[in-house]
Each structure stands twice: as C-alpha cells, then as structure tokens.
Design a binder for these strands. Structure first.
Lengths: 263, 263
DNA sequence: GCTCTGATTGAATAATGTATTCTTGTGCCA
DNA sequence: TGGCACAAGAATACATTATTCAATCAGAGC
C-alpha cells in the first residue's frame, strides 16, 4: 500500500500537527527528497521530534524510511501520471460531464485497487462462496450499495439478504451461525449500530466481512476480513458519490471473483 | 550520465577498494537501499571513510547523495525493464485483480462517456428534476442497477419507484401522466415487455428515458431521451458485469448532475 | 465545575550516521 | 636513503535521527 494514500486516508484521524505534516508532504512531495527531518519540521512549523513520531505512526521505522517510501510512491505516481496524460489511457473530452466524472472515478478506482491486498479480496470471495447465508447490513449512506451487492449475490445463487433497521439487523444476526457470513458496508459515520451487530454476530462464530472507509473505522476492527475505500478529496456530496463508486468497484471485484471461480 | 554507468566506466581507473565497492554496488544495487555507509563498509570489507570518499570521488556530496542517485537509476532501470514504456491507464499492479478489473472498466467508462452527448445527459437530468413521479423498470439483467438508481433518486428527494414484474409495470405505468417519467433500463434482451410498457406510457404523454445497450435496442427507439452503454469485448459473464459498470457510470453521471443543480 | 486519564507536543539529550582530519604504510623515483 | 604521492583506516568532529521526559491540552466520568 502506498504511503501517500495512507496519509490521505488518515488525514481525518490525525492531530493538528500530523495533519499539517501530511498536507505539506502531499502538496510538496518532491521537495521531501532534499529535506532532513529538521528542515521539514522548520518549514511546517513543528518540532523535529514530531516529524519522527509522525513517521513512526504511519508505520515506518523512522524519518528516513518514510522519506524513501514517499519518494518511491512519488516516482510511481509520476509515472502513472504521464501515462494518462498523453497516452490513449485518458478521457479526452473534458467538456463532457461523464468524462469529468470518469476522471475522478479513475483516481478512486486506482486508490481502491492500491489499498486492498489481493489476498484480502480472495479471502472475501472465499468467505462468500463458503457461506450458507449472507446477511448484508449497511449504514444509511451505503444502503444503495448494499442493495446492489445483495441482488448480485442472489443472482449468483448465494443466499443473501439485505436487512434494514437496526433492531431487525440484531434479530436476524441472532439467527446466524458459524457457517454464515455477515457483510457490513459503511462509509461515513453511522457505524455504531453496525458495530453492535458485528460483535453480536462474532460471538456466535459468524464470520464478518467489512467494506468500509479506510482507515480507522469502528466497524472494520470488529471484522475478520476487511476491505477499504479511500475517500476522495472533494466537496461532501461528490465525495460520497465517489466513495460509492469505490464501494461498487469492490463489489464488482467480488462478483468478478465469484464468477471466475464458478467456471 | 547515470551513476551506475559512471561506476562501470570508471572501474578500470579505480583503486582496489574503490573497485570492490563499485563491484558490490553494481551486483547488489537494490540492497543499497537499506545500507548505511558503515554497513556497506563492513559488507565490502573497507572502512566507513573509504565509502564516503568513494562517493565524493564519483561527484556526489556524500554517501546519502550517492545512495539516492543509485536508487533513482535503479528504479528507472526497473521501470524500463518492466516494459511497455509507461503504465497505460495508471493501474500499475497487474497482479491485483482489482486493478485488472479497473483496467477493463476504464475502457467501458471511456466508451460510455464518448457515446453519450452532454446534451442528452443534461436532458435526462432535467427530465428527472422536472418529474413528479418516476417509475423505474428494468429487464432481468439490470434489476440491480435499477434498484441502485431508484434508491439514489429517493435519497435525492425524487419520488421514484422500481417496479418488478411486467403486469405490475403495465398497471403502474397506466397511472402515470404527462408530468411523470418512465425510466427503462435494459441490457441484453428481455426488452419486449419493456417496449410495451414504454409505448403504453407514451400514449398517455409520459416522458420516457432509456438507458440501454448501444446501438439498436428496441426499447430505446420508443424513448424520448436515450442514453447508451457500449458492450465490451469479453466473455459473456464479464461482459455483463462490465456492462453494469457502464450503466452505473451513467447513473452516477445523473446523480452528480442532480447534485450540482441542487446547489 | 473538578479531577483523572490519555494523547500530543517540544526541549533536551542519547544514539546513530556521515564527513573530515590526521596518521600510517607502501610504492616509486632520484 | 630521503622525498614524494597516494591509498587506507583510526580517530574524531559534525549532522542527523530517535528517545525520554515534562508540560500542556482534550475529553470522560463524577
């Protein structure tokens, strides 16, 4: 998983200084090459130790590791950029709203592909295949996606139900057992009731698959298999729309996996 | 000139230790990433100061500079190695199934953006905004998309219903009037009953918006506003999956349009 | 409101890493 | 043999990075 993505995704859950650092690095990625931890600290206006701690919090051994990782993903990103800049990979007509939307979706799709390990996707597919019954639950913003997933699963011959309303969710979850799967889908907030359902289910040995916002999302930590979408950098409404695109991409990934295993 | 080449070229004019260092770096380029000057010195069997002097002799400010330069050219070489010049489309991990899927989706998205005129999309958005009630009907393969659209419309405050079953579709359509909109969604076949519903509705002055397969699709010719998806060139199952992606892209285009006009 | 707890921050400092200086040893030539 | 040039490493100065610790702040519970 690329470290710039990680930063973007975690921005919401960061402290003030950490966010300042993340913003700066995202804005001035290439400058980092020649910055020492002290220089970066001065430019951003924090202490040197904060820079080091920031690096460690993101999972690196220290500042040099972060720097290298950033540099790596920057090079990678620059390469990708040049790809759809001129190559046939791009949407040519920026006047067309569908193209503009597609442009933005592309980024989300790439991020989604980048953040989810192939093994996790495979595990999710296996869990779906192996499940007797699948309960799909969602927070209010993801109901549409949940319905979409549920219907697709039904078409594939999986015994899936989408349950609305937290009381009913609890009730139904109570009837699930070790052979079953609970799939929770969540975007921004509203996950509290889902967490309860998930915990309840897990106590009965039900496997839990989550499809949530990266990174810390209460619903995801109570899951056996976690899939993520990274929110885009847009105004709220568009962010939600794009987020659903990412979710749908994951759903399509699952469906495609189920299809190929069927053959 | 890249620093690895420089080293290779100068090998003859180097002292024993310098040559040892050059050889090692050329042989173990990628290892350098995690070596400090001391570690490199130990591995090669020279002193740490020799490493620094070697770096400076090659024209770098010091060991860290050399390290970065080596790393850069290594990455460059690796990229060239991995082939096809630049990563088309931007998904750089072809081993990741989500990326592979994204690659294919991208094509569909582009085609979809290319085939639908901006005015038609705008007209569709206007029609949705202007409608009192919206009936969504779909062929069997597009039910999931229809449900998705319906839910999104409801979230936006549009009075939308998805009607399943051709008799009921007819019945409900009968109650629509001039201020209403019928939205028919169709992919491959199964459109006969939809055509009937559409005709029936139009007789009563209902506007009809269609979202179908390009090009000739019986359902589309009986519509006022036509949006299209171009099927991809894949095996049947994947084709259906990708087709739904295209449909969803259109749906997202509609939603995004409705959102922006709302503001 | 108040206190407690845990998180965040930066100053000081320890630990590590890098560059320079200085000394030694070797080979070469007059 | 003395003088010189140069390579090499030890010692050390300098720079960067990591950790510790105390002060401060934010939220939870009373």
């Amino acid at each position: 998983m690329t470290c710039l993505l990680k930063m973007r995704a975690m921005r919401d859950q960061m402290s003030v200084n950490e966010r300042k650092l993340a913003e700066f690095i995202l804005e001035n990625t290439k400058l980092l090459r020649d910055y020492s931890s002290q220089q970066l600290a001065d430019v951003v206006g924090v202490s040197q130790s904060s820079v080091v701690k920031f690096s460690q919090k993101l999972g690196y051994k220290g500042y040099p590791s972060l720097k290298l990782a950033v540099y790596e993903t920057y090079a990678e990103a620059a390469r990708a950029q040049s790809g759809h800049g001129e190559g046939e990979g791009g949407f040519f007509r920026p006047d067309n709203p569908l193209s503009k939307l597609g442009q933005k979706k592309l980024e989300v799709l790439e991020n989604t592909a980048g953040i989810n390990e192939a093994e996790h996707l495979a595990a999710a597919i296996a869990a779906i295949r192996g499940a007797r019954c699948i309960q799909v639950s969602a927070c209010s913003g993801s109901v549409a996606v949940a319905k979409y997933l549920t219907y697709q699963l039904l078409e594939l011959g999986c015994w899936a139900v989408f349950v609305e309303g937290s009381q009913v969710q609890q009730r139904i979850a109570g009837s699930l057992g070790g052979e079953d799967l609970l799939c929770i889908i969540c975007d921004f907030g509203g996950e509290e009731s889902l967490v309860e359902v998930a915990n309840h289910a897990r106590e009965q040995g039900v496997k839990v698959l989550s499809l949530t916002r990266y990174n810390y999302n209460a619903a995801s930590i109570h899951s056996d298999i976690r899939l993520f979408v990274v929110p885009a950098d847009e105004d709220e409404q568009m962010q939600r729309l794009l987020f659903r695109s990412g979710q749908l991409h994951l759903v399509e990934g699952l469906v495609s996996g189920l299809l190929s295993q069927e053959a």
